[in-house]
Simulated assay, not measured.
Amino acid sequence: MAITRSRYRTATSAGTLVAFLLVLIFGSPWYVDWVNSGDRGIFLETLAWPAWAFDSDASVRDLLGADLKAILLIVFTALFITLLVGAQLASARGTISAIFTGWAAYIFAAALAAFITSFLLANPSFGQATANAAGGAGYGLIVGWIIGLATMAGRRP
C-alpha cells in the first residue's frame, strides 16, 4: 500500500501558518513602533499585541516573557486548532463551523499564552495573570477571524 501525500493544506497547518505570519509581521518592533507613533485605530493597534523584540531597554525577564508569549501563541494555536477541528461533528463540518473553530482556537491560544507568560514578569500574581489572559482573549476576539478564514480554507480530517 503506497502512502500518498495530500497536496491540500490541512486546517491546522493553514491556521498555524497565518498565526505565525501575524505574529512575525505585526508583532515586529518596526510595526509596533509605527503603531505607537500615532493613533492607528483599534484593529491596527490590537494587531501589535504579541510584540517581540531582539534588543530592548527592557529587563531580560520582560523581554523573555514577551518573546515567549509570541512563540506560545503560535504553538497553542496549532494545538487548539488540532483539538477543535478533530472534535467537530460530521454534521457541523461547514464553512461557518470552520471559521468559528479557528477563531475560538486563537482566542484560547492568546489567553493561555498571556496567562502563562505573566508569571515570568516581575512580581507575578494570579490576578495580574488573569487580567493579562483577558487582554489576550480580547486580542484573539478582534484578530481571530483571520485564523478562522485560514482554517476554513484548509482540509479537515
Rank of each mutant, 00 (worst) to 15 (best):
L68W: 04
T151H: 06
A133R: 04
L24V: 10
L22F: 05
T4G: 01
W145C: 03
L149S: 04
F119A: 01
V143Q: 10
L73N: 08
A78P: 15
S91G: 05
N132F: 09
W52S: 06
T4M: 02
F80H: 09
F76S: 03
V18K: 01
L17E: 08
T12C: 01
R5L: 09
L72D: 01
T46H: 07
G144E: 04
A131F: 14
L68H: 11
T130V: 11
T95G: 04
L22Q: 14
L72H: 07
W30D: 06
A131K: 14
A133N: 05
Y8H: 10
I146K: 05
W49G: 01
I146F: 07
I71P: 03
V143W: 05
V32Q: 11
A122N: 12
Y31K: 14
R40T: 14
A51L: 05
A114H: 10
L21D: 03
G154C: 00
I99K: 03
L64G: 05
Q128E: 15
L64I: 13
G86E: 13
T46W: 07
R155N: 02
T12H: 03
V18M: 04
M1E: 08
L47Q: 10
F80V: 06
R7V: 02
L120Q: 08
I74L: 00
G27E: 02
V75H: 06
L141A: 06
A137Y: 04
G86F: 12
T117A: 09
P124L: 11
A137P: 00
G140A: 07
S118T: 08
I71G: 14
D57T: 07
Q88K: 14
I96W: 12
N36K: 13
R155H: 12
F26A: 11
S118D: 09
I99V: 13
D55G: 00
F119V: 06
G144L: 00
G27Q: 12
G148R: 02
F43I: 12
Y8L: 03
D39V: 00
F100Y: 11
I146V: 11
V18G: 02
L89M: 10
G38D: 15
T82R: 11
F108D: 05
L149E: 11
W145S: 03
F80I: 07
R40M: 06
A133L: 09
T4K: 05
I74M: 01
A19W: 01
I25Y: 02
Q88W: 15
L17T: 02
Y31G: 08
Y106I: 02
A19T: 13
I147F: 04
K69R: 13
S97A: 04
R9Y: 01
G27T: 14
A11G: 05
L68D: 06
A92V: 05
W34G: 14
L149N: 07
L141K: 07
D57E: 12
N123F: 08
A87S: 14
W145T: 09
V60L: 11
A87L: 09
N123G: 04
G135C: 00
S13H: 02
R93A: 00
D57V: 10
T130I: 15
G41V: 04
A131M: 12
A98L: 02
R93Q: 09
R7A: 00
V32R: 14
